[in-house]
Design a protein around this nucleic acid. Structure first.
Length: 417
DNA sequence: GTTGAGCGTT
């Protein structure tokens, strides 16, 4: 059978790329994803109904519509709320741009879209929970199974040379980083977490927290119990139970809206009424509750948009309080981004794997023998949705800082949840 | 018993 190709494009009216089909006339999703990283399916506009239709997908195989692939242009589907690439900053698919926004961006700067496909810079990742005995060679050996490792460090006490129990690792490629961030790691007999270090994290929007506080917990509630219970509302990416027992817990969802929807509720878990409320930022200074407005980005809750449901026009509306016109908005965005250093690095709230430690038997005096207490609540969490900002305005830079000075204060305050 | 551990001598 002669080679057959179907035409695939990222948007309906964009130039299509020809993608080869298999001998049986199907097209492999992996073939599509090879050209459009992050793709999860295809759709097309039905010539009859004029509606978009999904292409049947089963087991990674895309099946032609009834009358064959024809000459239609198939449009790539990306995971919901995703601009079309996997973001190893979070190990998931954030990028909170609406399709509208994305299109605009592409018009403005086609090359920036390219940056987002695969060529991202990696970042150092902090490795928490290392056994004291783990050496840099150990780290390198372990992490090399994920990809090319270009840097490892074990942080040690300057005087004694003893490990501080954490280190850093950096990969060449973004995909490796993504993989590593989304799972826990058994290193020399201990479960370790890899995350973006604080220094690489941007601010977060309090109204968009994915984490809730669960008050009035009882001691018999394991993190597994909580995970199981809260799963009914949406994907749970993290459960944290402080040790020793303190009658509360934190539950993080993949979706901020789920979290928000539960706040204020009294829920019954194992026959006990627990109270759900907003998770306050860790280490927030004296501020409390009502002060929370200070923790935003300074431009209103949704100004730079987050994961869900932002219409492309609403962000302007949110600026009305500040009398900002679109130019100033762009400037503000540039200023914010440049102040975070790494362009395109998305801020992060609560990472996925972290609090498995609540079940790991670790404590301030870490038990290095570590045959953890067995409440292994971890089903290798599926990563966190992060806060996102557009990635391409950053070059304008620092000159704007002074004009937005007061707003910028908020950037480093708390919410590194 | 209602707010979480640890974050880089550059």
């Amino acid at each position: 059978m002669a080679d057959m190709y179907i035409r695939v494009a990222e948007e309906e009216n964009e130039e299509p790329m020809e993608i080869p089909s298999e001998d049986d006339g199907t097209v492999l999703l992996s073939t599509v994803a090879a050209q459009f990283p992050g793709a999860c399916g295809l759709r097309y506009r039905s010539p009859i109904s004029q509606c978009m239709r999904g292409v049947r997908l089963a087991e990674g195989v895309l099946h032609a519509p009834e009358n064959g692939w024809g000459n239609l242009v198939y449009v790539v589907n990306y995971p919901k709320d995703c601009g079309g690439f996997m973001d190893p900053t979070y190990g998931t698919f954030p990028l909170h741009e609406s399709a509208d926004n994305k299109r605009k961006m592409d018009e403005i700067d086609a090359s920036s879209a390219k940056i987002k496909r695969g060529d991202q810079k990696t970042s150092d990742l902090i490795v928490l929970g290392l056994p004291w005995k783990t050496t840099e060679q150990d780290l390198k050996d372990y992490f090399s199974t994920f990809g090319d490792v270009i840097m490892v460090q074990v942080k040690r006490d300057a005087k004694t040379g003893n490990s501080k129990g954490f280190g850093f690792v950096r990969f060449t490629d973004w995909e490796a980083q993504g993989k590593v961030i989304t799972q826990r790691h058994m290193i020399d007999g201990r479960w370790c977490d890899c995350k973006l270090p604080n220094s690489k994290q941007g601010p977060d929007e309090p109204m968009r927290s994915r984490k809730v506080f669960v008050g009035r917990c009882t001691e018999d509630m394991t993190s597994d119990d909580l995970r199981q219970f809260f799963m009914q509302y949406g994907e749970v990416t993290d459960v944290f139970i402080p040790k020793p027992f303190r009658a509360f817990a934190f539950v993080t969802f993949a979706d901020d809206q789920i979290a928000a929807s539960l706040c204020g509720e009294d829920l019954i878990i194992k026959g006990v009424s627990v109270h759900i409320s907003n998770a306050e930022p860790k280490h927030s200074g004296r501020g409390h509750m009502m002060d929370r407005v200070r923790y935003g980005n300074g431009f209103g809750a949704q100004a730079f948009g987050s994961s869900s449901s932002r219409s492309s026009s609403s962000s302007l509306g949110n600026f009305s309080n500040f009398n900002l016109n679109p130019a100033m908005m762009a400037a503000a965005q540039a200023a914010l981004q440049s102040s975070w250093g790494m362009m395109g690095m998305l801020a992060q709230q609560g990472q996925s794997a972290t609090s498995g430690s609540s079940a790991s038997g670790a404590s301030s005096a870490r038990d290095q023998t570590q045959y953890s207490t067995g409440t292994s609540n971890y089903s290798s969490g599926s990563a966190a949705l992060g806060w996102g900002a557009g990635t391409n305005a950053a070059s304008s830079g620092s000159g704007f800082n002074s004009s937005f000075g007061s707003s910028m204060e908020s950037k480093s305050t708390g919410w590194g949840m």
